[in-house]
Design a binder for these strands. Structure first.
Lengths: 335, 335
DNA sequence: TTGTAGGCGTTATCAA
DNA sequence: TTGATAACGCCTACAA
């Protein structure tokens, strides 16, 4: 902070020299372990000079010495979707009470990152959430790893959500409402969570022989979704209901419906996934499969902590829930 | 990967011993600097044994030795808003071509974090984006710091966007359309970016004496926004236009309008901020102030790199733009 | 072509 | 109450 703004950072040794004490004294004082070991005025002097010199601890050195960094990495496919904020919040809560910080890293498969561009960083563990199998395998670096919302990986604690069950509930709801032509709007991003939904959809359809099913794979580009949906709805015998892999996709359908002068909930039923905050506020409010994202992060962090303690948890599957709102209604008599 | 799954991690020394070479050879080989210095079969043997032993580099040690970690931290107020995904993308692009990884840390003021709960981590720099002054001051750790979309900090490179100018354009647009009662829906999260908008709003209003202005401060809880807007619109001489600090807030207005049977763009004009992907897709498409978020991240990372190189850039302000769509229209004759 | 040795900045164990 | 001193695991002159 004062004159000596040289290149070289201020080390604890510098402080020791300046305060005329040994380096170990500095360490003790600066880590708050001096009570009853160092005289109070000495401690004060050390703190003062550390401050004056603008001393900053070198975390790399500390981490090396301690053999741990107190930070884990949460790898997610994208920062665009707010769902990962919820996962993070859940994980952060557990982390905080265990002295672990979390840092987020978006691992966009879209960017075609070949060699995993990890920050060259010192980590105590990794939580991989909703990633592609490829990305997860790149993450297996020997660090404690737990996998969230993803295909079980051998020897790796896994927390998943019963998205298949959610899909089943969605379809049961729709068929009960009389829908017989149902479209599944799929996210084409390669991720287990989406293939699970597709599989569940296909399987459920098998037990409803009276239903004609179809599906469409889309990127998350919302104009694309809208346009392709418009197309899919502009045919004879169009679908009367659409299940979407994500609430945002569902909301794009709203735009498509409005362009076609279709009223959601009456002419066309729509179901989303995730229950984003915006889902409840859409017009009409969106029926959606609520995913326990906070719990996902929470349990994931818990599993990572257990893993660091030498306990490898068994895979867990969290329940999901269909939240019925106004975007679904009885199948229209004719289309 | 094989039997020796003891507690102690495998070090380069272990590899050296097992491969019957010196540690330096291991280092050379594993860093790809062996070409022309180490015989090829030796190199292969080293790589093989490293693999067999499951050797993983200790980043803390490497970072300590190298005096740098190759990773910078991007601190953001929340992960919920996708705008920060864009900032990140811009920054990541520059970072990647300079060997710097980025890691994201949500610094929620809401959580009442007192002392900055940084992961105890080794970083090469920090980029603070759209934070509260309090949070920024907590980030001044002696690391190279650049501040984005925030109040200029002494001795710190800053990149901002001309949000005030954006607000001015929004108001000019509205007054030109004949609006005389305008409401500013403000985000109550303490952040420079929002106070700037408020100041710009207040100031612009001064030069339009015929306009009656009002404002409302809301959290980002969208039900709250909807309900309070409904209230604000349920009075005699209600506002005919609303400017919102964020597109998501604007979209909440849509819900309010629908509840009141008001048609956006005709009975009520709405302007947002950010130009999120959803803005263009809303019904009707949202008029909004587009912020150069990608450029913000890009320039910010650039400034950080310059700073590490000893060059302290001057503050920069990026231009903003009003994107006129269908949510704004002529003021209704009577209200 | 390979090995030796020193040091990066901490923390922790012991002696003084 | 304090100070030497020895690691932590890695990289890199320099020596062999």
């Amino acid at each position: 902070m004062n004159g000596n703004d040289q290149r070289r950072p201020v080390t604890a040794t510098d402080v020791a020299r300046a305060a005329k004490v040994s380096q170990s004294t500095v360490s003790l004082v600066l880590n708050g372990k001096w009570q009853g070991r160092i005289r109070e005025d000495t401690a004060r002097r050390v703190m003062r000079t550390a401050d004056d010199l603008g001393y900053r601890i070198n975390q790399s050195a500390r981490n090396l010495r301690l053999g741990s960094t107190g930070t884990v990495l949460l790898a997610v496919p994208t920062l665009v979707n707010p769902v990962f904020a919820t996962v993070h919040a859940g994980a952060a809560r557990v982390g905080a009470s265990n002295g672990l910080g979390i840092v987020v890293f978006p691992l966009s498969a879209e960017d075609g990152f070949g060699p995993f561009p990890t920050p060259r960083q010192a980590l105590d563990g990794v939580i991989a959430c909703s990633l592609s199998a490829h990305a997860v395998s790149n993450l297996r670096t020997g660090l404690p790893l737990v996998v969230l919302d993803d295909a079980p990986v051998p020897d790796t604690p896994t927390v998943t959500m019963d998205t298949g069950g959610g899909m089943a509930k969605a379809l049961a709801h729709l068929t009960a409402l009389g829908h017989r032509r149902i479209l599944h709007l799929r996210a084409e991003r390669p991720a287990w969570t989406f293939t699970r939904r597709a599989e569940a959809f296909d399987q459920c359809i098998l037990s409803h022989p009276q239903v004609t099913a179809d599906h469409l794979s889309c990127s998350f580009a919302i104009e694309e979704i809208r346009d392709r949906t418009i197309q899919a709805l502009s045919v004879a015998n169009r679908p009367t209901a659409i299940v979407c892999d994500d609430d945002n996709m569902a909301l794009s359908i709203y735009a498509a419906a409005s362009a076609l002068d279709l009223t959601i909930g009456r002419d066309l039923s729509v179901i989303g996934f995730n229950d984003l905050p915006t889902a409840a506020l859409a017009t009409p409010p969106l029926t959606t499969v609520r995913l326990p994202l906070g719990a996902l992060g929470f349990r994931g962090m818990q599993a990572l902590i257990d893993l660091r303690g030498g306990v490898a948890n068994d895979p867990v599957t969290l329940p999901t829930e269909l939240v019925i709102r106004k975007s679904t209604g009885p199948a229209p008599a004719t289309t």
